[in-house]
Design a protein around this nucleic acid. Structure first.
Lengths: 226, 226
DNA sequence: GCAGGCATGCGCACAGTGTACGAGTGTGGT
DNA sequence: ACCACACTCGTACACTGTGCGCATGCCTGC
């Protein structure tokens, strides 16, 4: 008993709980994340978790900050603020895509853990090469983060749709297609039709980069000044 | 019995259920939305709801489309595509802000109800004044919608934070402030400090419009072309 | 008028959730 | 040696979504 408790189960800790929770959420989705399940994964009793965290809400905040901390900060891009900001945005996007549950939590409470602050500081440092106006720098970073967040949310929605129905991409397209054909045949939405019929459907990466490029160009041009 | 069933409770219907669900989610948040609670609000049995909808997932999809349909389409802006697109973005934002639970659902399955399609068609019509390239129009609309979604998600996170803690804005600022002071005092994040100390904290409307203006300027300048 | 089918409403039950409470246990300080 | 403490965890409670099957009232065919 002594050996088992000391050896095989080297006691719980906040860090271990958070790591197990992140792994579980990554593997099976945020809906599968329950306290009982985390405890089972750790080989401990369910309520033991509550000795190290105050509740599920706090656990999720800790998970968010932990994920923000797992990637190292991108290298200093020198004077090219635009490339630097694009790199920040891509890293942020990669973090969100790697942990699909993250984007879903973003509209709950704002994360302000140490790792989040570190990333924010880095982004502000990059923008500082472009403008020394603290208020403006703040808004620029907000705008870029905001765009990335929305972009990933939309991308995940698409991905989730075909995952939850268990269809391949082609099957999904067919399924939606027959429904959409009704709408198209009604002829009431000509522009929507054109989008379906004429437009190429760019992949998520291309869409992301297109919007990011527009946003950065607008920033560079000095838009948004009073 | 006959009278009661016929008069006071004029039978359930999909539409009534959806409306009750939207009202409840607006008033008490998405977490308070349970099938039992909706049934109680309607004065019916819980499982009666399942005669009209297949389950909670479908209910939420119906709720999303219902909300998209409650605002009339903005007037045709004529040839000023930029003003028209800005109007579309503001309407979208208003819908999301009026129903905080909406943004949280956006990263689940994509809504493709009739009302959503109608709005999409309208947006594409506006952009058609700017470019006739269907693929490019598609990406432009995506980028704007994406930005609005992210912007609202961030705004709601702030709002939710102070609502859930039951603090006023000042109390919240103080509470975060003391925590942040630790970080600031450490001196490790100079740019973050400058943001806290020097930057004005623009309200959500200003932040939204700043980013939107940047994005639209970038689009107008032709950014994102290969 | 009446029988039967059918749509609808709903009580019960089941497996699952977050977490409060308090009892049990091994460890370190005095 | 003793006590206090940190920790683990079984039990319990009030919830959740929803499948099953029964009851009831209306509509149709005779």
């Amino acid at each position: 008993m002594r050996d088992r408790d000391r050896g095989d189960r080297p006691a719980l800790s906040e860090e271990k709980i958070v790591r197990a929770a992140v792994d579980l959420a990554d593997a099976e989705g945020i809906d599968a994340l329950s306290m009982r399940r985390i405890a089972r994964e750790l080989g401990s009793g369910t309520t033991s978790l509550y000795r190290h965290i105050t509740g599920k809400d706090e656990l999720i905040e800790l998970m968010v900050d932990a994920v923000y901390g797992e990637r190292s900060l991108p290298p200093d891009p020198g004077d090219d603020w635009r490339a630097g900001l694009a790199a920040v945005a891509c890293r942020f996007r990669a973090s969100l895509l790697g942990h699909p549950w993250l984007a879903q939590q973003a509209s709950r409470r704002p994360a302000l853990g140490p790792n989040v602050i570190a990333r924010l500081d880095h982004a502000l440092a990059v923008v500082d090469r472009f403008t020394h106006d603290a208020t403006r720098a703040n808004m620029i970073v907000s705008a870029v983060n905001t765009y990335v967040l929305g972009s990933v949310a939309a991308e995940l929605a698409d991905r989730e749709a075909q995952r939850s129905t268990g269809m391949t991409e082609d099957e999904w397209r067919d399924s939606v297609g027959t429904y959409v054909r009704h709408v198209v045949d009604s002829g009431r939405y000509p522009h929507f039709n054109r989008r379906i019929l004429d437009a190429d459907d760019p992949n998520a990466d291309a869409r992301f980069e297109f919007g990011l490029d527009c946003l950065l160009s607008g920033i560079a041009s000095g838009a948004g000044a009073w």
